[in-house]
């Protein structure tokens, strides 16, 4: 039996205010060592986690948003962002960090990690998974 499963980490909450976003990222980073087929999804207020230019100095909390830019190094290359969640919040992809990964098979060509998907398409992505983590 193959031990490789399709994992999807679903991030639904704002980055600060509660610890869910940060502790979700901790699972993602640890889980990367298990060599599973990992995807991340950002929906609802979770899309705020990927905002560029985050500044937490006024709330006395660690700004962990630079960590998302390292996901490519952990071979996490599929980051789904739900289109409706962005639109409902007046955001576009330009408001988010530009996340990339390097494709070893194409001479380390830099490729976009973020895939903008509709709510219905994200539902299809979820249906394909073996394990859903919901944070």
């Amino acid at each position: 039996m193959s031990d490789t499963k399709k994992f999807l980490y679903i991030n639904r909450k704002a980055p600060y205010g509660t610890i869910y976003a940060w502790e979700s990222l901790e699972v993602v980073l640890i889980g990367a060592a298990f060599e599973q087929d990992v995807s991340l999804a950002f929906m609802d207020d979770g899309v705020y986690q990927l905002m560029k230019g985050q500044d937490t100095s006024a709330i006395g909390m660690k700004n962990f948003s630079p960590t998302y830019a390292a996901l490519g190094d952990y071979e996490i290359t599929k980051i789904f962002v739900e289109k409706e969640s962005l639109e409902e919040r007046g955001l576009t992809l330009d408001d988010l960090q530009h996340l990339v990964w390097e494709d070893e098979d194409e001479d380390w060509a830099e490729k976009d990690s973020i895939r903008l998907v509709s709510r219905a398409e994200l539902g299809d992505v979820m249906a394909e998974q073996d394990v859903l983590f919901n944070f």
């Binding site: 031990d3 499963k5 994992f7 699972v27 640890i30 889980g31 060592a33 298990f34 599973q36 394990v131």
Partner: peptide, 10 residues
């Protein structure tokens, strides 16, 4: 560690 959670999923 968190690996125990991921292992649980696997």
């Amino acid at each position: 560690g968190l690996g125990q959670l991921v292992e649980g999923g696997i």
